[in-house]
Write a protein that binds this DNA or RNA. Sequence first.
DNA 1: CCCTGATTCGC
DNA 2: GCGAATCAGG
Length: 238
Amino acid sequence: MSWTEERIGTLTRMWESGMTASQIAEELGGISRNAVIGKAHRLGLKPRPSPVKANAAATAEPAVEKPAPVAEAPKAATPAPKPQPPVAAPPPPPAPVETADEDEEEDVFGEGPAIPSTTPTAPVPRQPELRSVGPGGFVRQNPGEQAPPSTPAPPRRLVPARPSEAIAGKTSLLDLNDRVCKWPIGHPGEPDFHFCGDKVNPGFPYCVDHCGHAYQAQLPRRDRRPPPPLPYGGPRVR
DNA sequence: CCCTGATTCGC
DNA sequence: GCGAATCAGG
């Protein structure tokens, strides 16, 4: 296996999307995670929270001796908070759908309701909604509820896009580029898992049709959930 | 044990 | 340049 332009591109996108080296290796196929890491380093794209790197200098740092074990102020003993779980990858760029204010505001112009009667402002007892969660971490839709803006199919674990008859002629992982719709069809692991592959809506990772699915009116913040990043083909900013 | 990324070093 | 071996932390 060699590092073709395509494979490097996939590696880069996946790496920057926060995929682990193992996942990337598995995805690219026929390659070890060491190879991925090695390549990533050679490409110069390192910045990733490393479990080992946090407290480096333990190795190859012989000259550092402690000057005085005297009562050292223990306050500055804050190594480095790493609030960066490997889940990154800002999802889709600009949401075309612009909802009105999401902040509850008073009527700035007092042009309020023509009904001065009771129930001035609906009490709105925020009731905790019961939700069920699907296998992939999806929030299932409650009966009578508008479809939540769920990201397509957030695969937790990517699956090698092995050449298979099922995906013959379909848009496979390796076929992804900036011009085709990256909307997943099916689920990773299934033999015929592939991608939409239509021409993208310029500036978006999906075709016009799937943009309609991907971008919907926003829910209140509390009902929003962190964006499971798309597999790859991340934020192509243009 | 499993996982992770980093680094080394022979090829 | 490549990647297995190794290291080291979680």
